[in-house]
Write a protein that binds this DNA or RNA. Structure first.
Lengths: 345, 345
DNA sequence: TTGAAAGCGCTAACAT
DNA sequence: ATGTTAGCGCTTTCAA
């Protein structure tokens, strides 16, 4: 049969022919196999470099029994710092190891998520970082069981290591802060209980209420998928209820963005009309007037941990593999001007 | 030779055997080739679906003469809305066409950029969206000439369609606004001239100064790579110079973020101590106190255009292919509270 | 319209 | 230590 149009690219066969060795030897030399005479290996590598040889990642990955050519990065959204910052950092760190990162957005849709997971395995990804959708399908769960996975922000109940924010602790602090200022009517805006972090946060804030001598059951609660739009709606729902809360605790990055917008639109003066605690990293929480009291989450730290864990998971050394389960990053309460004593205290 | 451990996955050979047809026919049916009897094709597709067949994208891409399995998305950073929003939207739109997006970060380093472009071609990407680094290497340029490319935000001088912001026009408006308020000492903080958008912006603002009856050469100028850190430093450099400017025009998203921070840190009251115009999309420019007068760029529009153009570029229809050269998205001046008459007018 | 078989570019088992 | 050769899973010639 006629050879298909050559891409003009040099391949192992070219190198082998040019050096008078076999393709196997070339392959070995290029993969740092010790089974090649060092000087020969060096000569091959030099020649490959000179000829501008770039191995075909597809062929390599298809052929090799194990390949680290690709990993998947699966998140519900990426236009919010919680995801974009982590995506960037992971792509960077992984590229150092010669791994390319395939980015997919689920939009928090379980069907879409499953489809994308299938497509990712079809691309023979070595592993993936995933921030599961709210109602992950059983098929997705099964699929994830068959491949190295690091969870991010949210847990889906699979056996895998994950990087999460240690919200419960800081919530004690935040609620204590508000209670200490004299607030009794504290409203809570958070993520749904169906989300692992939503459940943890709600539990944390309820516990914190009790610890602060307040009745958790009296606390106004609004839970919603983490989008800025839902943050806005949450503000309206909570502040329009009677009796109106004197303090609002928002636990969720995207929700906090919408909250800040909506609170401003409603013309509320902070902290006189309302004490506000938000959540996340955005630098601009500090630019607001007054600067917002924030539960600060270091997304860059999350990123570093996630990338490292995935790398270790894919590495040769079994001892370096991270244990399944949560690996927590501790957020920090930054008290600023948006919290103060209640006006009608 | 012994068959390697079967992955348990069904493949075309399995399907072919089970249906008593050849792998070629299966492949044809699965690829909607018209050269298969419709009912047979349907039967094959049904069976494939039933068996949960998922084609190996690597094998497909390796084998096929042309494949749309992967595209690359190459940007200097991704932790800023100008890139993260576009990345998300592109990944979403492309996945609809069965294409996966490989995300790579150059950190604006030309060497890193070249390496990543090589690796991307090694993955046989069908095309790519790129926001070139400031000093792209000739090798990178060559490489880009051999593959469908859409430029984003910045142009690198190659022959390719690109999506850019139409800054020159809006700068006339912005400078006119400031001049109309009585400002004569306007300082400009922007991106370097080595960056296509930097050159266009500087030219635009100089032209605008002239049009407003001001001397472009008297304008204080500070140019720097678009990072928040450089925005902060730029503020210091421009405001500490004497005579101090009464207005500051920042043209660059990342620079604007740093600017907003630094201006606040310096305790400046806007617009009394300084009139400030920033650039970008961030919702929080509106949350600042006072809300910042902003040159608003719709990154989501950029994203849509870029994804569409890449899709069309890769499509069958030659008539749908976007023409090389700039495709402009028009930003909009949003006057808010950070601009007013100069105090010492 | 279908099948047989040759690759895509590489790695890895087996033999030497 | 090196070569020979059989795949990886698919697409695509070529022949029928």
């Amino acid at each position: 049969m006629v050879r298909r149009a050559r891409s003009g690219q040099v391949g192992v066969v070219d190198l082998a022919r040019e050096l008078g060795v076999s393709t196997a030897t070339v392959s070995r030399a290029l993969n740092d196999s010790r089974a090649v005479r060092p000087e020969l290996a060096e000569r091959i590598r030099a020649h490959a470099h000179e000829r501008g040889y770039v191995p075909n990642r597809l062929a390599r990955a298809l052929s090799a029994s194990v390949s680290r050519a690709f990993v998947g990065f699966v998140v519900p959204y990426v236009d919010t710092p919680a995801y974009s910052a982590v995506a960037a950092e992971c792509a960077r760190l992984l590229s150092a190891g010669g791994t390319q990162m395939i980015l997919t957005i689920t939009e928090n849709d379980p069907e879409r998520e499953l489809r994308q997971l299938r497509e990712l395995t079809a691309s023979r990804v070595a592993g993936l970082v995933i921030s599961p959708s709210t109602h992950m399908l059983p098929e997705s769960r099964e699929l994830l069981a068959s491949i190295p996975v690091v969870e991010l922000h949210r847990a889906s109940g699979i056996t895998a290591p994950g990087v999460f924010s240690d919200d419960e602790r800081v919530l004690d602090e935040a609620v204590g802060h508000l209670a200490g200022l004299g607030h009794r009517a504290i409203a809570y805006l958070g993520t749904p209980e169906a989300l692992s972090n939503g459940a943890a946060r709600l539990q944390g804030v309820r516990h914190a209420m009790g610890a602060a001598g307040l009745d958790p059951d009296a606390m106004a609660v609004h839970l919603a998928e983490p989008t800025p739009g839902n943050g806005r709606r949450g503000v309206d729902a909570l502040l329009d209820a009677r009796p109106a809360p004197t303090a609002l605790l928002v636990v969720g990055g995207a929700l906090s963005i919408g909250t800040a917008q909506r609170v401003r639109e409603r013309g509320l003066r902070l902290p006189d009309d309302l004490s506000l605690v938000v959540y996340g990293d955005p630098v601009w929480f500090a630019l607001s007037d007054p600067p917002l009291t924030t539960i600060r989450v270091s997304y860059s730290e999350h990123a570093r941990r996630a990338a490292e864990m995935l790398t270790d998971l894919l590495g040769e050394d079994p001892d370096a593999r991270p244990a399944p389960g949560p690996h927590l990053v501790v957020p920090e309460l930054r008290v600023a001007g948006s919290t103060g004593p209640p006006r009608h205290g």
